[in-house]
Amino acid sequence: MTLPTAPPAQDFTGRTVVVTGAGSGIGRATALAFAERGARVLVADLNAESAAEVTARIQETGRTAVAVVGDLSDQTVVDRLVATALAADGPDGTSGTIDVLVNNAGIMDSMSAVADVTDAEWERLLRINLTAPFLLTRAVLPHMLDAGRGAVVFTASEAALRGSAAGAAYTAAKHGIVGLTKSLAVTYRHRGIRSNAVAPGGTITNIRLDIDPEAAGPQALGAYMGNVGQPAEAETQAAAIVFLASDAARNINGAVLPVDGGWSAV
């Protein structure tokens, strides 16, 4: 008697994956990792040149990729992304499904303490880091529910696990991402939808930091920065995201996975 051969747990052949912030850093590494595993990838980014470069690189390997450029806190951009993803999935341009959504796009704050955060910084951080993932998830969810399956992975942060890893606006936004992750998991767990998050620690990316080292925030947080440890490569975070989206994690739902070299354990 021979046992049936199980398909690889991280094979995404025939599946459509949306990755936001896919033009650089963790998003870029994630888009490439899904493409390597056979997925059709929608590369979403605010930077047209970066999105085009990643899309071209995927296409050069013989895989399918399409780019959508725009600000995902704008509902019209969200609607265009979803329509593009569904068209890219179906044969001959007919409507298909969105199997995986990776809400990765985000920006850093200036490490400002609560008393120093301006209205503009607060609103920008919440809009990009929390409202935009909410809008896109809300738009994708009906299509996943119609299909009876789907995986959503959010990029949270070490700052989502404590109050000493970033400024007030970024920390609040990432705590919000954890709440959104868990709410989604609880509400739709019996309808085939899984929702999880990674919480990266220090990671080598090109994300821009604009920090005044003499400000109250950096002065207060500096004492904790010695626990960061060795920064991870973007590919390390991508591997965790792919795992959480894969069938290998089919019974993992509502989890926040620290990928921080043990920083959160200190």
Rank of each mutant, 00 (worst) to 15 (best):
W263L: 14
A113M: 02
D146R: 14
N129A: 01
P7L: 13
A223Y: 12
E233P: 13
V41E: 11
I26N: 02
L42Q: 09
T97F: 11
A52W: 09
A185Y: 09
E233C: 10
A249D: 02
N129Y: 01
T236F: 08
Q237G: 13
A249N: 01
R28N: 10
D74Y: 08
P258M: 06
N206L: 00
H190E: 15
A168M: 00
A255S: 13
V228M: 12
N129K: 02
V117A: 07
D45Q: 07
A159Y: 14
Q75P: 01
Q237N: 12
G192Y: 06
L135M: 14
A105V: 09
Y188R: 11
R149D: 11
S50N: 14
T20H: 13
Q10L: 15
T2R: 13
T30H: 12
G150W: 02
L184H: 05
V41C: 01
A240E: 06
R37W: 00
D99M: 12
G202F: 04
A51M: 08
D74G: 01
S195D: 08
T20K: 14
Q75V: 03
T94M: 10
E235A: 15
R208K: 07
L209Q: 14
P213V: 04
V152T: 07
M108D: 07
T171H: 12
G106Y: 04
A31M: 04
Y170T: 04
A9E: 03
A265S: 04
S50Q: 08
A56V: 09
A173I: 07
A33C: 11
T155G: 00
A166N: 13
A35Q: 09
T16G: 06
V100A: 05
T187A: 07
V17N: 08
T64G: 01
S164C: 12
L209A: 15
N206C: 08
G27S: 05
A22N: 10
A238H: 11
M111D: 11
E121C: 08
A87W: 08
D45R: 03
V100T: 09
R127G: 01
D11Q: 05
G14K: 09
A249L: 08
V198A: 06
A169F: 04
G226F: 04
L180H: 11
A168I: 00
S164M: 14
E235D: 10
S183C: 15
I98E: 05
T84K: 08
V41F: 01
V102D: 12
T131V: 04
A31G: 15
Q10N: 14
V259L: 01
A139C: 06
D89A: 06
T236W: 10
E60S: 10
L221R: 02
V78L: 07
T97S: 11
A220E: 13
R37A: 00
L221T: 12
R37V: 00
A29T: 12
Q10S: 14
L125C: 15
D99E: 07
A232N: 13
R191H: 15
A232C: 11
V41I: 05
L209G: 06
R138V: 10
G90C: 08
L101S: 09
D11N: 03
R80C: 02
A220S: 11
R250M: 01
Q219I: 14
A83M: 08
A215G: 00
V266G: 15
A115G: 14
A239G: 14
L101M: 04
V82Q: 10
D74R: 13
L32Y: 12
M144G: 00
V18S: 13
